[in-house]
């Protein structure tokens, strides 16, 4: 059985693609055969974040329209043996994403033995975003501790609960997970930023992780390496914890409380 996980948020720029890349990589590092699909037709970026932009020949829309096979379009990841990237089309219209087409691609991935398919949703609530969540079994709602992001997350939760196949079938609903990103424990402690508990209380979705605000995310995207591979960074550790929790392991939240730097750290840096 393939589990389909959508990474979505409503608002743009909150860390969907960063999360999709690291989440898919993390599952592959645990040995699962994983595919990650970019649904942002016209504005593809997952290929850049994964560092495979120069190897893109065919894309999702080519596969849907029968111009290429899935095997031709899937790009093998450079870090993980069992991870494959399906890029979005850069030139086509988002109307090229048909429900039947997307369903067939997902079915074919299942026949190819993929255990997880991660759907990287575009921002907004239009066709691409709806297609990305339509067939989801689980959803990761990426939210920044900031008013517009929280409101848009609530909106996309409403759409998930109305338009996904699981919602329409009336059976078991899509399993929702809240991921708070760009988190600054110091600003939370200073009363300047919503805490992850505030965000969780407002959205009422179980939390799967908190990713701290960090320079290493830009560092990662600059070099086309998913942030989970940046050794000894808090972000990589936090994403590994997300994978552990997703797989049902017990992993307490880390990097959520602020410790005042000691004299030593202030003098010599950390």
């Amino acid at each position: 059985m393939t589990r389909i996980v959508v990474v979505t948020s409503g608002k743009g720029g909150v860390g969907k693609t960063t999360t999709s890349a690291s989440f898919a990589s993390g599952l592959a590092m645990r040995g699962f055969k994983t595919a990650v699909i970019d649904f942002d037709v016209g504005l593809r970026n997952l290929d850049l974040i994964m560092g495979c932009e120069r190897r893109v020949v065919y894309d999702l829309v080519n596969v849907i329209s029968g111009e290429a096979t899935l095997n031709q379009a899937l790009i093998k990841d450079k870090h993980c043996e069992n991870l494959f990237v399906l890029p979005a089309s850069q030139t086509r219209d988002k109307d090229a994403l048909t429900e039947e087409g997307v369903e067939k691609v997902l079915k074919d991935l299942e026949h190819m033995g993929f255990e997880y398919v991660i759907c990287d949703s575009p921002a907004g609530i239009e066709r691409g975003a709806v297609m990305a969540l339509t067939f989801a079994d689980e959803a990761i709602i990426v939210t920044n501790p900031e008013v517009s992001s929280v409101r848009d997350s609530d909106r996309i939760l409403g759409i998930l609960q109305a338009k996904s196949k699981r919602a329409q079938a009336g059976g078991e609903p899509v399993k929702e997970h809240l991921l708070v990103t760009r988190y600054s424990p110091k600003r939370v402690e200073d009363g300047e930023m919503l805490s992850f508990k505030d965000v969780q209380e407002i959205l009422r979705v179980p939390i799967i992780g908190v990713i701290p605000e960090s320079e290493s995310v830009l560092h990662a995207s600059n070099q086309g390496t998913p942030a989970i591979h940046i050794e000894q960074s808090e972000v990589a550790e936090a994403y590994k914890d997300v994978i552990a929790r997703f797989l049902g392991e017990d992993a307490p939240l880390r990097f959520v409380s602020y410790e005042k730097p000691g004299l030593f750290k202030r003098l010599f840096g950390g």
């Binding site: 900031e146 008013v147 929280v150 409101r151 939370v188 200073d190 009363g191 300047e192 930023m193 919503l194 805490s195 505030d198 407002i202």
Partner: peptide, 12 residues
């Protein structure tokens, strides 16, 4: 600095 997080929470 002004503590505005509570305002954000109430408004949301």
């Amino acid at each position: 600095k002004p503590k505005t997080a509570n305002m954000a929470k109430e408004r949301l």
